[in-house]
Amino acid sequence: MNIIQDIFKEFDNRREELEISLEEMRQEIAVYKDKLLLYGAGSAGIAFLYFLRRIGLEPRFFLDADRSKEGKECEGVKIITPDRVVEIAGEDALVIVCINTDGKRYCKSFDEALRIGGHHAVYDKLREAGCKNIIDYTFFRRCHEFFQKEKYNAPSCSDVGLMIKHKNEIADVYEWLSDEQSKDVFEKILRFRLLDDTLEIPTMTQEQQYFEYGFYERRTDDIFVDCGAFNGISFKTFLSENNNQFEKYYGLEPDCVNWNKFMKYKEQLPEEIQKKMYCIRKAAWENNEGIRFYSLHGPGSFAADIGKENVETISIDAMLNGQRASYIKMNIEGSEKQALKGAEETVRKYKPRLAVAGYHRTEDFWKIPLMMKTYREDYKIYLRSYMNHISFVYYGV
């Protein structure tokens, strides 16, 4: 029996003390029935909203510090600014902070969680506005039933039942990891999700994210495929790390606001670099059929059936049309598995270095490395965390 199986066995033995029932959770927040507010009209807030709706609870408002959102609606829920909470909902409203956080939220009771607090800047702002009852949405991860069958991205709260169902694959991935630090990170993420969310995950500086050159050598002929180009930030790091030396760059970004920022960044680059850039306003996907897309016009835009627009998609295999890629990076808000599927031919033929986010959906934790190994059995798999348990990347080398 390996260490992963031991963790699952410990979870089985301690499950009664670790888990609260759905009914317990409902009772804790049902007293705020008409005064339930969600802070953060972003991807985590949207995911939590749909978890609530599934059990028959509806928040009265979204709160968001971005004043450009005031008066608008997010999924049918009106958005107000925090300074209006007491005026509209009263000081005794319950505000659930829906921001993905690496903070520690392990509390044994609802009262304790309300007392301890969370995001300092957000909590301070809400308390200054007169709010008395504030809690992080991560407190509710103790209710495993609530987070079953996740539909949208809530990386701070895992589907524990799904992990139990796939514990053998999780154990296999642990054995494949190529160094002790990867194994340590993997083990602690699993313990964090199942046993103890006060654990510190060994964390690297975010400046190194996607470009861990300790695993492989720099090269001047890189063909870099950047899935989730955002505003050009990853390409900027790539250029800095490689002294502007590369053969070709493909940048894919479907969000229109992010795309415009990306184009402004491109226009500022030297002409000799721009000539080697191929920028594509499409989402990386498994096919070219298009998807529904939820644009947040910043970080976090994601593919979803509740998306307000259709965006074009392209598979990496179709985009390259048999040509080489040497480096593929993916951080695309839960679409990594589909994009990897669309790159299967390229990965099998050219074995590019891979840097793929593994945290947006619960099953990404084991499915991303499983897909890497399925496509190229000779890949070495590494894992590094960049924000405790909620931002980690698998590297295939």
Rank of each mutant, 00 (worst) to 15 (best):
F8C: 10
K275N: 13
Q206Y: 11
F246A: 00
S182F: 07
T138F: 02
I201T: 06
F8G: 09
D184I: 11
I29C: 03
K248V: 06
Q27W: 12
L22K: 13
G103C: 09
V347Y: 00
Q209R: 11
D305G: 14
I170Q: 01
A339G: 07
E289T: 12
F230Q: 02
Y152T: 08
Q323N: 15
K276E: 02
I390S: 07
V86Y: 04
G45C: 06
Y386R: 03
R292H: 09
Q209M: 12
F262I: 06
L126G: 04
G298A: 11
V77K: 08
F262V: 02
R376L: 05
P59L: 10
L269A: 09
Y294N: 15
I201P: 06
V311A: 01
R115N: 09
R115H: 07
I189E: 01
Y106A: 14
K236P: 07
I170W: 00
A355R: 00
H297W: 08
G396V: 04
Y50R: 14
N100Y: 03
N168P: 03
G307P: 05
V347F: 00
D226A: 07
K236D: 11
I316A: 02
I291Q: 00
A229D: 01
I79K: 14
T237L: 06
L239V: 04
R281E: 13
K78S: 07
V356G: 04
E336R: 01
Q148V: 12
F238T: 03
Q338G: 03
K35R: 15
I55Q: 08
G130R: 02
I189R: 00
N168D: 15
M1S: 15
L38N: 01
G300A: 13
I20L: 09
V97Y: 00
G76Q: 04
Y123C: 08
H144Q: 13
K69R: 14
D197C: 07
I55V: 15
V393E: 01
Q338S: 12
V122T: 12
K125N: 13
R105A: 08
I55T: 11
Q206E: 13
R193E: 04
